[in-house]
C-alpha cells in the first residue's frame, strides 16, 4: 500500500510542478549541437573532383559525373537515401562537401530528395551557423573572416 501511495505521490508531484520536457516545435526550435549532421552543402568552387566522397559513401548516395578530362559535370546526392554518417565530409581533402545542421527539409516525392549540385549549394545554414567553423574552430571554416555574413563561396 505504501509503495502504491509513493508512486501516486510521485506522479502528482510532477503534475503539480508544471515543468515540461517536451518542446513546442516549431515555435521553439531546438538547439542542435555544432557537430550535428544534417543536410549536405556542396561547394563547386572548392571541389577538385577527386571522387573520394563517392568512393567512401557506404550506400552509393553520391553520384559524380565528370567529362573525359576529369572536369566535374554533375554532383548528385540523394538525401533521402543518405544515412548521415559524415564519411564524405571526413575524407574530403578540401572541405567541399559539408553536413550542415539543417535538419528541416521535405520533399513531396522521392525524386524531390535527389539534390543536384545547384540545390546542394543552396541548402541554407541552420540558424546561420557554419558547422565547419563551430566543429573545428582553429580551421576557420568556410566563412570569410570578418565579414559577419554567411557566404561561403
Amino acid at each position: 500500500m505504501i509503495g502504491m501511495l509513493k508512486s501516486m505521490a510521485t506522479t502528482m508531484k510532477h503534475a503539480l510542478d508544471g515543468e515540461k520536457f517536451t518542446v513546442q516545435y516549431p515555435e521553439e526550435t531546438p538547439e542542435v549541437s555544432p557537430r550535428f549532421r544534417g543536410v549536405h552543402k556542396f561547394s563547386q568552387e572548392r571541389c577538385i573532383w577527386c571522387r573520394q566522397c563517392e568512393d567512401v559513401c557506404p550506400n552509393d548516395t553520391i553520384q559524380i559525373v565528370t567529362d573525359d578530362k576529369r572536369n566535374g559535370e554533375e554532383y548528385n546526392l540523394h538525401i533521402g537515401q543518405c544515412i548521415y554518417c559524415r564519411l564524405c565530409e571526413e575524407v574530403c581533402p578540401v572541405d567541399a562537401i559539408l553536413l550542415t545542421q539543417n535538419f528541416e527539409f521535405t520533399g513531396d516525392t522521392k525524386d524531390d530528395l535527389a539534390y543536384d549540385m545547384e540545390e546542394l549549394k543552396n541548402v541554407p545554414w541552420y540558424k546561420d551557423i557554419d558547422p565547419l567553423a563551430s566543429r573545428e574552430p582553429d580551421r576557420g571554416g568556410w566563412i570569410g573572416e570578418g565579414e559577419g555574413e554567411v557566404d561561403y563561396q
Binding site: H14, E19, K20
Partner: peptide
C-alpha cells in the same frame, strides 16, 4: 491535458 500534466508534456494546445 491531465495525462500530459502527469507526464510532463504539453498536450492539445
Amino acid at each position: 491535458k491531465i495525462t500530459a500534466a502527469f507526464t510532463d508534456r504539453y498536450a492539445v494546445n
